[in-house]
Design a protein around this nucleic acid. Structure first.
Length: 477
RNA sequence: CGCGGCGUAGAGGAGCGGAGUCCUCACCGGGUUCAUGUCUCGGAGACCGCGGGUUCGAAUCCCGCCGCCGCUACCA
């Protein structure tokens, strides 16, 4: 779902490179027309049927209270304390229970359908006991989409919202967006998992059976993330780390984001949000102290500094040209102290696996491991010492610095998704043009080619340039 | 109450049956000077939530307990 316009989005964040092709407004005619079509089909197939909903009704709030909440509050209104009444009314239901087997079979056949695994287990267990769900409401005061043939009842907003994934791609020209590449990937927050991982797939199965909808397939994956949390003052006066929200006052507002971008750059924001974010099942804390820490250690001290020291040496010893290679070096950077034999393979494995599993921290850290290996390599080989006698050691220094520059080039390819601005700046300095290559190739990069060893051209001018990520000095008190 | 998940150095993570657990950050001490107070080596710091069990061997498997979190369905 996208917003029709990016109001309230901070200036700098507007400059990110994320793009969208269209926005879905659930109030649009196209959406309404399509949802009405889907429901007409589902009514005909019997998967949506008229029934009777009975439950505990809170007259003051004009809403039903779920059984467990009713019990918790001793069958009184949680709001005004008046007793709840047993009430029933006409309602349309979706035959979710009929799809248990098919859903479970789908989960079985597609182990990565819902991720992470903890969420998958959660959903599988709930599906086993899934009941039919009421999907219509009354008294919506004219908004919402009416059940076809029964204007009194409107489709429950969440059900109608799920269909937004389909309503704008459901044209002959666009259907491939839904079906290509093994299906769509839904990237959602943990609170709406049930809707996306059980109800939505079941609705799709139901729709697929209907005439003219055999093109409808299941999403490829539903990935569930958690929340950003931060410190907030509770009503009780205590401080706690809780989910960000406007009402709790611990919201990360546009001004703060703008200020961060102003100070650290857009790459830093990208890097922080992607590698430190609440992917997986635990929430992540957003704090400025952590932001600075991550910026300094990963971007300034590691990638930025390493790029700087290598290009500086090349400048000093070889007049800013990539040293000529005298021999082909098979240098495999050492990645970890603990496993001195594990090298590039491990970096590559961790990087690709990280992206595959949506563990972006792992993917990014793998690239940094390569950078750390460059630093360690410089320490061991000490080209700055050898350079004191260039007539004796010139060719050895050449080899070493070539290796360093080449390893950094490869690291930059891996880091590109996280810090594109800095990487492109770096490529300009060392004479690469991957951004242009990608553009020429229809927006697709060639990762496995670009990471192959030995692509820097000897003799290429190397520019030192400004610090890619100037270290941020924390104010001392 | 039900279902599910989690609990590993000060913080965040990895390891999920076998070599003195490991990684990043923070902390302490040494080295280095090509580099952005950088890099590098060393150190301190964990009864791997608690108690049992299985095993030649458990952070890892099983049982119980404690603590935290998620879901439990009606307007996004």
């Amino acid at each position: 779902m996208g917003r029709p316009e990016r109001r309230g989005v901070p200036q700098h964040v507007r400059e990110t490179r994320d793009r969208n092709d269209d926005f879905v407004r659930t109030s649009s005619e196209q959406h309404k027309t399509k949802v009405t079509e889907y429901f007409t089909a589902l009514l005909a197939s019997g998967d949506v049927y008229a029934g009777e909903y009975e439950g505990w009704y809170d007259a003051g709030q004009e809403e039903y209270v779920p059984e467990n909440k009713a019990k918790e509050s001793d069958y009184k209104s949680p709001v005004n304390g008046k007793p709840l009444v047993r009430k029933s009314e006409k309602n349309y239901f979706f035959k979710l229970s009929a799809y248990r087997e098919q859903l479970l079979a789908h989960f079985e056949a597609h182990p990565h359908f819902v991720q992470p695994d903890a969420r998958r287990n959660e959903i599988i267990n709930r599906i086993k006991e899934a009941q039919d769900i009421p999907i219509s409401r009354t008294g919506s005061n004219g908004w919402g989409i009416p059940i076809p043939g029964d204007e009194e009842q409107t489709i429950y907003v969440w059900i109608d919202a799920l269909f937004n994934y389909l309503t704008y791609v459901d044209t002959p020209a666009r259907r491939h967006y839904w079906t290509d590449n093994g299906g769509a990937t839904h990237f959602i927050a943990k609170d709406i998992l049930w809707f996306h991982a059980a109800i939505w797939p079941a609705l799709l199965f139901a729709l697929q059976k209907c005439d003219g909808y055999d093109w409808v397939n299941q999403p490829k994956q539903i990935y569930t993330h958690s929340y950003w949390v931060s410190k907030a003052k509770l009503d009780t006066g205590e401080e706690a780390v809780i989910k960000m929200g406007k009402s709790t006052g611990n919201f990360l507002d546009p001004e703060t984001l703008d200020a961060l971008v102003e100070t650290f750059g857009l790459d830093a924001l990208r890097y922080f949000l992607s590698t430190q974010g609440p992917l997986g099942t635990t929430d992540s804390e957003f704090s400025e102290a952590k932001y600075v820490e991550v910026y300094n250690s990963d971007l300034a001290n590691t990638f930025g500094n390493s790029a700087s020291r290598v290009s500086n040496m090349i400048g000093k010893y070889f007049g800013h040209r990539e040293p000529l290679m005298t021999s082909l070096i098979e240098w495999e950077p050492t990645v970890s102290k603990a496993e001195p034999d594990t090298k590039w393979d491990l970096v590559w494995k961790n990087h690709t696996q990280g992206f595959f599993n949506i563990n972006l921290y792992q993917a990014g850290d793998a690239a940094l491991d390569l950078v750390r290996a460059v630093d360690a390599y410089i320490e061991v080989t000490a080209p700055f010492k050898m350079a004191k006698d260039m007539t004796e050691n010139g060719s050895a220094v050449q080899e070493i610095l070539f290796n360093c520059a080449e390893a950094l080039r490869i690291a930059s390819v891996l880091l590109w998704p996280f810090i594109p601005d800095a990487c492109e700046k770096f490529w300009e300095r060392v004479g690469c043009d991957y951004a242009a290559q990608m553009k020429a190739n229809g927006g697709k990069g060639k990762l496995d080619e670009w990471v192959k060893w030995g692509q820097l051209q000897p003799g290429t001018p190397i520019e030192k340039g400004d610090a890619l990520f100037p270290r941020y000095q924390v104010q001392k008190k």
